[in-house]
Design a protein around this nucleic acid. Structure first.
Lengths: 140, 140
DNA sequence: CGGGATCCTTCTTGATACTG
DNA sequence: CAGTATCAAGAAGGATCCCG
């Protein structure tokens, strides 16, 4: 089962390989998509459960993220027309397949975030990659 | 030498697991970081080579991305004080280790971008994940 | 050639208020 | 409970000018 879609169309080749990298990055690179997916990896959740599980997200962003994910077929939305309205969100097979790739990234972050942190701290001292920090405050 | 750094500090546990996910996403989630890294995966390149290899990037963004990557220790910058100024950028071991994780994502994108595209197209017809109004023309 | 500084426009995001 | 609609602030990105 799962992705029984047969790739029979002309959709396998890309003119520019950088094109679909940007494509996927635009999808999962926004602030809340990855967190939403990883939160839903445990199982289906309701709107309010998601909002509680992702501290700091606003209902606007949650709704938007959910819609985008649903539109792309990464999650399903099930609304129960009960007296207390209830809507449940769940990952599709496609969505679950993304977890794998995301976890590789998460794993990398878990392994190397210390190095990055210390590298950045060292750069502050040597002034290596300093963009324009400590310059002033009248930039904008 | 490489990454002979021994993880001996207290930097392995995180208060919130969502914290460092956002951390790494903020790092590689911006528009050009991943493309820059993947471009540099072939070997060291000069500033102008990078700009040519990443169509659409401005010198502002290239410089900024390069600085951030250097600051985090993912790339190295080598300036040659020659008559025609030349600067070469190269991935560090840390940077190369990221390629692996990135490739998992790229691989996922390559495998499923067709599904996503058709799912999105189908949603347009049924009006599933429609954000706001029939924008139709400016959806992407 | 490489890049710093600045201006300006667009996109993103969060807060708020209202609806079903 | 589960959204929708609108507004304002801020960040991101691009274009341009200038310098070493």
């Amino acid at each position: 089962m799962a992705s029984t879609r047969q790739i029979s169309g002309p959709c396998q080749a890309w003119p520019e390989d950088s094109a679909f990298i940007r494509e996927v990055l635009d999808r999962i690179g926004d602030k809340w998509t990855v967190l939403t997916i990883s939160t839903l990896s445990a199982g289906s959740l309701r709107y309010s459960d998601l909002q509680a599980s992702i501290p700091g997200i606003s209902q606007r962003m949650l709704t938007q993220t959910l819609k985008h994910l649903e539109r792309d077929g990464l999650i399903t939305r099930t609304a129960y027309a009960e007296v207390p309205p209830r809507v449940e969100y769940e990952l599709t097979d496609l969505g679950r397949s993304l977890i794998d790739a995301v976890m590789a990234m998460v794993d990398w972050a878990a392994t190397h975030h210390c190095e990055i942190a210390s590298n950045r701290a060292a750069s502050e001292l040597t002034g290596v990659g300093r963009a324009k920090a400590a310059v002033s405050a009248s930039a904008g």
